[in-house]
Design a binder for these strands. Structure first.
Lengths: 238, 238
DNA sequence: CGGCCGGTTGAGTACAATCAATTCTGGTGG
DNA sequence: CCACCAGAATTGATTGTACTCAACCGGCCG
């Protein structure tokens, strides 16, 4: 159980100012219950489109379980995954009036649905919510910069290794002590996030397996066998 | 004159909630003058290191004129440019106690230097400053995502075209009606930002010039000649 | 003049994209 | 329980493009 039984909406972050490696709850119990009053629980199946870029913004979402991907439109070709969103995260807040991204469930997802009107009224009353928003924005910013960093690598194996490092760190922040890395999304989602083709992702994984750097238990679970080599690949210049 | 004569620190953003294409001042006159009281004006020469990752955080900066680049450390190889910072932007706020990025002047730069202690005291008093911070964070987030998008392209010419589009939009937001795009930084900075080698940048520019898509007046000024072709290249899938 | 810095050009190599099979997997219905 | 199916993932062969390393150019400054 990554997240304890939800006692209402849960906003987690490592916090931009306090150091430390664990995410903590940014809202106090009263705030959580007040938000809970305006929230409803919704469920999505794997693959469901939660909202589309350009749709009228009606609600933000706070994930209880599952993984969501946000997409930026490539004005021409297929969309591009900008972020994976996990339990304790918020999505759907960007922009005014219209969503600026699309969001799609990558696994089965349950989430709190927060109508923005009510949410804004709450925020106006509670200065602490500002801090929560700032914290989440800082976190999102760090992630976007890390994403850009992943994409700056040319070798596919480096991008994949960095991506795995990133997933591992997220798990640690969630407080899962497991040495095994879980990869909830499928290969094509990894490909979109890492700016690679499906084939390239597959070959990159094969490369890591071949030289005994990582070992898969199944398609969604792996262990790092040779940590130094793994780091070396992740940190390869270019 | 991109920015009117500074009457004190100036924080500009397009705003995450209000639509519109022009950046506006996020602080009122009283706030600006209060911040001005704690600020000193500093100048840097092109190439100066303003602060280094890991240094103790002593001050944030608000650019008056010039361009600064922020760098993320590539644990191994050379650093990587995460963002270009322009007049009206703030940098140096990230992290607590220590800078998480390095910052280097890409042109001659003048800036307000804001000691963080005094700045934090001001922020505690003024709720509107929170909003300013949130606005800037949203803007930084959008830029980081755009950056990731640029890096997701494989063709060098696409990356460069997107980068130029981005520079053009920044100019429009600053209210410069000029059809000519100005590129204040040098080729190697573009290379670092776009995740390319210097050679690849050079060849990509040559490609755009060769088929009459853009034309340079000099190394730092260009016009887009064939807009449809330019967009086509920028939006090339992959 | 000579050196340096920013930038361009050239030849060869490495690596990912592409397109096209082929295999693996998980789920469904008989 | 098994046969089947569709989607996910791997593999193969070829091509394109960016990297590497290196030589070269042009302006600027001492």
């Amino acid at each position: 159980m990554p997240i304890p039984a939800p006692a209402g909406p849960s906003v987690l972050a490592v916090g931009p100012w306090e150091p430390g490696n664990l995410r903590h709850q940014l809202l106090n119990d009263e705030e959580r219950s007040r938000i809970a009053e305006i929230a409803t629980v919704v469920r999505f199946r794997k693959g469901d489109l939660i909202y589309k870029r350009g749709d009228k913004t009606q609600a933000a979402f706070n994930i209880i379980s599952g993984v969501v991907a946000t997409y930026a439109p490539s004005s021409n070709g297929p969309d591009h995954i900008t972020a994976f969103v996990y339990p304790g995260d918020i999505f759907g807040l960007s922009g005014k009036g219209r969503y600026t991204n699309s969001a799609k469930a990558k696994t089965a997802v349950s989430a709190y649905r927060l109508p923005i009107g009510a949410l804004r009224r709450l925020m106006a009353q509670d200065a602490n919510l500002d801090l929560a928003v700032i914290s989440k924005l800082c976190e999102a910013l760090r992630e976007a910069q890390r994403h850009a960093f992943i994409l700056s690598k040319t070798r596919a194996a480096s991008r994949i290794a960095m991506f795995l490092e990133f997933q591992e760190r997220l798990q640690k922040e969630r407080g899962e002590p497991n040495s095994e890395i879980e990869i909830p999304m499928d290969r094509s989602a990894i490909a979109e996030y890492c700016g690679l083709t499906l084939s390239a992702v597959s070959r990159a994984f094969y490369e890591l397996i071949k030289n005994k750097t990582v070992a898969f238990r199944d398609r969604h679970h792996l262990n790092i066998i040779d940590r130094p080599e793994f780091e070396r690949i992740a940190n390869t210049t270019k």
